[in-house]
Computed example of a mutant assay.
Amino acid sequence: MEKILEVKNLTKKFKHIAVNNISFDVEKGNVYGLLGPNGSGKSTTFGMLLSTINPTSGSWKWFGKEGTDTHTLKKIGAIIEQPNFYPYLSAEKNLEIVATIKEIPYSRIDEVLEVVNLLTRKKDAFKTYSLGMKQRLAIASALLADPEVLILDEPTNGLDPEGIIQIRDIINSIAKSGTTIIVASHLLDEIEKICSHVIVLKQGNAIYSGSVDAMSNTKGFFELKADNISELVSVLGSFGIFSSVKEQDNLIIAQISSDISASELNKKLFEKGISLSHLQKKKESLETQFLELVKQSNS
């Protein structure tokens, strides 16, 4: 897979260490999440990668080329700060100004407004827009130059649930077109819903970088239920493929140590005379995995 971005040992020191020796790669066509609480180094990382903040040490390559020059920036659409548009001008007029500065044909304006579901409101003044609509217009502005990479810093910050869902749907739609997206967020739920890969930051340190699915070393767990709970627990323990078997909320939770499919487990239990009323194989939530990573980084 083609690498869009390669970050090596990137560090930024102010009075404190904001970003500490982080390394990660971003591959073409994926949605990456930069996950961490406020103050973990997300915005500082973006600032360095976009050459608005000078690094203390480390390096990066965009599209195989060292650093970030003006030619590279033309391939990147970024929303790092709050949308900054003229309040009394319409969405269309505001985008015309951006298009003129970037030497982009006005024909792109309707295309990007349609992507963010604002085409029917393009004649309305920016000051009449809700916070969610303003954020969607900012995304439209970032898409004007048809970038290969879209960078979004906390795109759902301050939005109500409906606004969050709208932004999430737009990000997923843009990703399907093949655009590589990097999203910074402190919201675990949002990262889990839109990202294929995640870089987890804690106090400037990258404590994980990889796919969301591979974030946990565990193989997941089974939820099971049967009429005879004690017999079910005993038989599951005898198989030697579970690291733990416990009762929780009227269900049996069996942590998998040796991978097995749900159908295979169902067959093995049926052969032991146990008929299940409930069987579901699950992976730990991103929240569970995140908390485990933080715990490991503290030890």
Score class of each variant (00 low, 15 high):
2 E>P: 10
5 L>Q: 10
13 K>L: 11
14 F>P: 02
19 V>P: 11
21 N>E: 06
22 I>L: 12
22 I>W: 07
24 F>A: 09
25 D>R: 02
27 E>K: 11
27 E>A: 04
34 L>Y: 12
36 G>A: 15
38 N>A: 09
43 S>K: 05
48 M>C: 12
53 I>R: 11
53 I>F: 13
55 P>W: 01
84 N>S: 15
85 F>M: 09
89 L>R: 12
98 V>N: 12
101 I>K: 08
101 I>G: 04
104 I>D: 04
107 S>G: 08
108 R>H: 14
110 D>C: 09
117 N>D: 15
119 L>N: 14
119 L>V: 13
122 K>M: 14
124 D>I: 11
126 F>A: 06
128 T>W: 05
129 Y>G: 03
129 Y>H: 09
130 S>I: 03
133 M>T: 07
134 K>F: 04
135 Q>K: 04
140 A>Q: 11
141 S>L: 07
142 A>T: 05
151 I>L: 14
153 D>P: 04
157 N>L: 03
159 L>T: 12
164 I>T: 15
167 I>L: 09
169 D>S: 11
170 I>H: 09
171 I>K: 00
174 I>F: 11
175 A>E: 05
175 A>M: 04
177 S>W: 03
184 A>D: 12
187 L>H: 07
188 L>Y: 03
192 E>W: 05
204 G>W: 03
206 A>Y: 00
208 Y>H: 00
208 Y>T: 00
210 G>W: 01
213 D>G: 03
217 N>H: 08
218 T>Q: 08
220 G>I: 00
222 F>R: 02
224 L>G: 03
235 V>D: 05
237 G>N: 15
238 S>C: 07
247 E>S: 05
252 I>E: 02
257 S>T: 09
257 S>W: 00
261 S>R: 07
264 E>R: 12
264 E>C: 13
266 N>T: 13
267 K>G: 03
270 F>P: 01
274 I>V: 04
275 S>W: 06
277 S>G: 11
281 K>V: 10
285 S>H: 00
286 L>V: 01
290 F>D: 04
299 S>N: 14
